[in-house]
Structures are given as C-alpha cells and as structure tokens.
C-alpha cells in the first residue's frame, strides 16, 4: 500500500504494490500451469480413443502447424525485445514491438481457426470422439488464451499511448509479457505432445 518509490529498480518494480502485483501474477501462472497440466492429462488419457472417427494422422497437417509454431515463437521473441525497449525507456520502440508481437499472435490465431475449419471439413468435430473432444478443448483453451492476450495487450497499448511509461503502465506491460511467454511455453508442449507424438504414433 505504501507509495514509496525505489528508483534504483526497473520501472515495473519501483513500488511495493507493483512488486506484489507481479508476484501475484507469477502465482496465477502457477495456477495456469496446473490448468494446462490437467488438460494435457485428459488428452493423455483419451488420445487414442477414436471411436471409429479420424485419427491424428488423418487430420494433422504438419506444414501448417510448423508455420503456427514459427509465428508464435517469433512473437515471444519480439515480446522480449519489447520489454527490452521498455527497460531502455524507449516508448516508441516498446509500442512498435508490441504491435509486431500482436500481429504475429493474430497470424497464429488465423492459422489455428483455419486448422479447426479444416478439421471440421474432414468430419472431425468436438462431438466425434473422445480424442477429438480433448484435442479441441486443449487447443481451444490455448487459442482462447492467445485471443484474450491480444485484447488485453491492446488495452495496455492504449494506456501506454495515453499515459506514457509510468511504474503502473510498465508493470502492466511487464505482466502481459510474462503471460505471452507462458502461452509460448504451453505451445511448445502442445507441439511436442500433440502434433509430433501424433505423427509418430
């Protein structure tokens, strides 16, 4: 609650309330890890229960998934540059890199929606089999997180434009950065344990 400002620290860590917000977000990410771990667990139990429907090999298009992966991993890198620019107090650089990050994120989403449409055309919907239910919910939860992240980061960009770099806006930017990297980590697990494993099964 104290408004004491410690200017020796990076902007986002300067007040006690901001430090608490960042720690709180780390704890929240802990809860998110449990959430995704559960979804992976469910997928791990159901991933070979096709109920006569399509299998991994029937529907996965590895080329498109590779493009999605490259888009998302690159966006994590550009998010890193954005935070780096923030540390240099370069507002213009920060916003530029944030916008690039979101564009890459939107590209990823576009690909994912196309992927879902492609699956539906192949007759693979959420209602087809247990495998597909768990696949769609796992991918969909990740995709919903990316969508939310894009909306949320847009709010933060508007605030950065209105208010410039303050401890508060810096903290908000830093937290969305953590969130974005987290989604990237989850995607690496999805790419490995869903797509690659599905293709070698």
């Amino acid at each position: 609650m104290s408004a004491k400002v410690d200017t020796s620290l990076p902007l986002e860590y300067q007040t006690e309330q901001d430090r608490m917000n960042i720690l709180g977000f780390w704890v929240f990410l802990g809860a998110e890890i449990v959430l995704f771990a559960t979804l992976f667990g469910v997928y791990g139990v159901l991933y070979e229960r096709f109920a006569g429907g399509p299998t991994h090999k029937d529907i996965f298009v590895i080329k498109d998934v590779m493009i999605q992966t490259v888009l998302l991993l690159t966006s994590s890198f550009t998010m890193g540059i954005a935070i780096f620019e923030m540390r240099r107090h370069n507002l213009k650089g920060l916003i530029t890199w944030l916008v690039i990050t979101l564009a890459l994120g939107a590209g990823f989403l576009f690909m994912e929606i196309n992927e879902f449409i492609h699956y539906a055309h192949e007759g693979a919907t959420m209602q087809t089999s247990a495998f597909l239910s768990s696949l769609f919910v796992l991918l969909g939860t990740h995709g919903a997180h990316v969508t939310l992240g894009i909306g949320w980061a847009t709010m933060v960009i508007i605030q950065l434009l209105k208010r410039g770099l303050t401890p508060t806006t810096a903290r908000k930017t830093f937290i969305i950065g953590l969130y974005w990297h987290f989604l990237d980590v989850v995607w690496i697990f999805i790419f490995t344990f869903v797509y690659l494993k599905g293709l070698v099964a």
Binding site: L35, L39, V42, V45, L46, R49, A51, Q127, A130, S134
Partner: peptide, 25 residues
C-alpha cells in the same frame, strides 16, 4: 475448473470426455 468445464462441454455441447459412448471414460 477443468473438470467442471469438461462436464459443461459434455452436457451442453455433446463432447465425449466422460460419456459411455464415443470413447469417453
């Protein structure tokens, strides 16, 4: 949270997480 969400999907949107048919468990 996940368990209840999957229950909601099963009941409202016809998925097969816990159903007897469709490979659910």
């Amino acid at each position: 949270t996940v368990a209840l969400a999957l229950m909601t999907f099963d009941r409202l949107y016809g998925t097969h997480f816990f159903t007897v048919s469709g490979g659910g468990m």
